[in-house]
Design a binder for these strands. Structure first.
Lengths: 118, 118
DNA sequence: ATAATTGTATTAATCTAAATAATACAGTTG
DNA sequence: CAACTGTATTATTTAGATTAATACAATTAT
């Protein structure tokens, strides 16, 4: 099974797990499902899942102990860099929107209404 | 020559031309360079450029007359749908940023500072 | 102890979308 | 008439994403 539509699976998975961790749904030092478990659950290849875990580890969101498992990093290890990356991506999105005719007020309004539903 | 980095060339080109049109650098009914001219200038295949022109026409930004050329559409033909599309994409970006830990105030701040430099 | 499970690593093969390439056609323009 | 226009078709090539088949050493559970 292969998820279509441009965005690579390992990135989709990375976004999903990032959300679980950043939102606090997973606690610090909580164990993540093994690479093989996730692969089985979503019918993916273990290598694809490992790629995601490597990404998450590079960004400080998780730490992996060989032969043991992968765990959620303490918040102070990642929150800064995670937000920095998000801010960078978001800045690009703002620039794109401006180029397509939206102004600061309109963007601010979208931010407000989108965040309100949370 | 092939532009690297995930985003397809025809989308990069589409973004670039959209900017020219939306910003007003190109005027209504102004003629766009021909498919073959653009292809030559950027060392692309004419088919790739044509794909971009098709996209732009679908979005109402340009209109093409066979055997004559492609021209910038009047503003009222596209500005609404163009902004709607931009708003849709931007909303996704907001959601992504929120999932990664940014809040409404932080996002608004980024909007302000990013738009200021323009 | 020993069998199963862990993260990690390597290498090759497969698959798909993107991009290229080579044309062709009909209408216009000079 | 010759050159140029947008448009269309089909086949090929390419590169990145994904799969696949393993293997290893360390940990855990039986």
């Amino acid at each position: 099974m292969r998820i279509r539509g441009g965005i690579p699976i390992y990135e989709q998975l990375e976004a999903r797990i990032t959300e679980l961790i950043v939102s606090g749904e997973m606690e610090t030092d909580e164990r993540l499902p093994t690479v093989r478990e996730v692969a089985k659950q979503f019918a993916l290849n273990p290598n694809t899942v490992q790629k995601t875990y490597q990404l998450l580890e590079q960004r400080g969101l998780i730490y992996s102990i060989p032969s043991k498992g992968s765990y959620v990093s303490p918040r102070e290890n990642y929150i800064e860099s995670c937000k920095a990356l998000a801010a960078k991506n978001f800045t690009e999105a703002v620039n794109d929107a401006v180029k397509r005719g939206l102004n600061a007020d309109e963007l601010t309004q979208i931010v407000r209404s989108t965040c309100k539903d949370k």
